[in-house]
């Protein structure tokens, strides 16, 4: 069972990497970029029947630091 976990910085948290990417895109001549936020995509290949609770615990215990990050779980079968 393939599952994707998207980890993103919480709204109010400054994202220095996003800012640098933003700056670099503008340096390449792209315009109209309002904001850039960088995050992580973690792909898990899980045994069938892995419970939602376990997947959520994987996220909250390790994959995301919930002090500064949010996570979203997407099952792709």
């Amino acid at each position: 069972m393939k599952t994707r976990v998207f980890v993103t910085l919480k709204g109010g948290v400054l994202d220095p990497q996003g800012k640098a990417i933003h700056h670099a895109l503008e340096g390449l001549g792209f315009s109209g970029i309002n904001d850039v936020r960088a995050g992580k995509l973690i792909e898990l290949d899980l045994a069938d029947g892995t419970s939602d609770e376990d997947i959520d615990a994987m996220c909250s215990k390790l994959l995301a630091n919930t002090v500064i990050e949010n996570y979203r779980i997407e099952k792709i079968g």
């Binding site: 948290v13 400054l14 220095p16 990497q17 800012k19 640098a20 630091n65 002090v67 500064i68």
Partner: peptide, 17 residues
């Protein structure tokens, strides 16, 4: 120590990169 919960808060990438 912050990641383990022994201290509050978190340490992020330096603001100036």
């Amino acid at each position: 120590l912050t990641e383990s919960g022994l201290l509050p808060g978190a340490l992020m990438r330096n603001a100036g990169i």
